[in-house]
């Protein structure tokens, strides 16, 4: 019995460690490139030929030639700003809609729920052009608003919040109602705090999603001072030559903030998803 357990343990560690090697190996390659001198021709090796930290300041200051006032820091700030507002507002909007779909009885509820789900199914490239036209008609061309406003609600968020509100017992609501509290108060002060884990989950999802945007900012942003970091990284890829050292350094700089956010939310993250999946 004991020896069997021991074997299972070994197999478990072996599996997990090989999976981690699979996921981490390419990232080690990235880190190695970022501390190796950049020649314009990348190397396959996992061991650096020589070590330099020049790539980091070089990548940081790369955009200044195009616009003196812009560094990777500016773009990092833009990304953080956009991700922050998108996350805040969309969690608010999504949870409100999710609350109504979970807790209220009204005409067209089912239709609205399916409409929210159907937004998940729309391929972005399919609607990019009409969406672009609408966005610029609102006068949002070349402004951070164009990166924020269209994404302040998501079907996925509405869905997740609906599921987690469904799993909360009705007693809480009823007690508040008996006290004469209005609907917004119930939603805001009683219900929302109860789904904090879902909120944490959505923070991670939204930040990740907003951070990964590429094609949309490419269409609507022109000014370097308004560019998100993901678009900024494209500078290091030329027609023929890719500046790998700089790209990898830039990438690490761009990834660190999200890693921090993920680590901060990790504890709640798993818990939050389980709320959403109770159904």
């Amino acid at each position: 019995m004991k020896s069997q357990n021991w074997w299972l343990y070994v197999v478990k560690y072996l599996l997990v460690i090989s999976a981690c090697t699979f996921t981490l190996l390419p990232l080690i390659w990235v880190i190695v490139r970022s501390i190796e001198p950049d020649t314009g021709i990348e190397s396959y090796s996992l061991i650096p030929r020589s070590i330099t930290f020049e790539n980091y300041p070089a990548a940081w200051n790369y955009p200044t030639v195009i616009d003196e006032n812009v560094t990777l820091g500016t773009m990092l700030f833009n990304s953080l700003f956009v991700a922050g507002i998108v996350t805040l507002v969309s969690i608010f909007f999504d949870s409100m809609a999710g609350y109504a779909l979970a807790r209220k009885n009204f005409v067209g509820k089912k239709v609205l729920f399916w409409l929210a789900l159907s937004t998940l199914m729309i391929p972005f490239y399919a609607v990019a052009i009409p969406m672009y036209i609408i966005t610029i008609r609102f006068g949002m061309y070349d402004s951070l608003a164009a990166l924020i406003i269209p994404f302040t609600a998501s079907g996925f968020g509405v869905f997740m919040f609906r599921q987690s509100f469904l799993s909360i017992p009705a007693d809480f609501e009823q007690a508040a109602k008996a006290d004469g509290a209005n609907d917004f108060y119930i939603y805001w002060r009683i219900m929302l705090p109860m789904v904090k884990p879902t909120v944490a989950t959505m923070v991670v999802f939204k930040v990740l999603w907003s951070w990964g945007q590429f094609f949309w900012p490419l269409l609507v942003i022109q000014d370097y001072s308004k560019m998100p970091i993901n678009l900024g990284l494209a500078m290091f890829r030329g027609h023929n030559i890719t500046r790998w050292g700089l790209l990898c350094a830039g990438m690490i700089v761009a990834t660190l903030p999200i890693l921090v956010i993920f680590l901060m939310c990790q504890k709640w993250y798993v818990e939050g998803l389980s709320g959403g999946l109770k159904g």
Binding site: F93, A97, A100, K109, A126, V127, P130, I134, T152, A153
Partner: peptide, 27 residues
């Protein structure tokens, strides 16, 4: 009750309508 529910749904579905549903019908 209906009106309150719609009010709760309004912000999210306004965004959906403007930036997703209208575009997809347009497509």
């Amino acid at each position: 009750e209906n009106l309150i529910a719609y009010a709760f749904c309004a912000p999210a579905y306004t965004i959906f309508t403007i930036f997703l549903f209208i575009p997809i019908v347009w497509v």
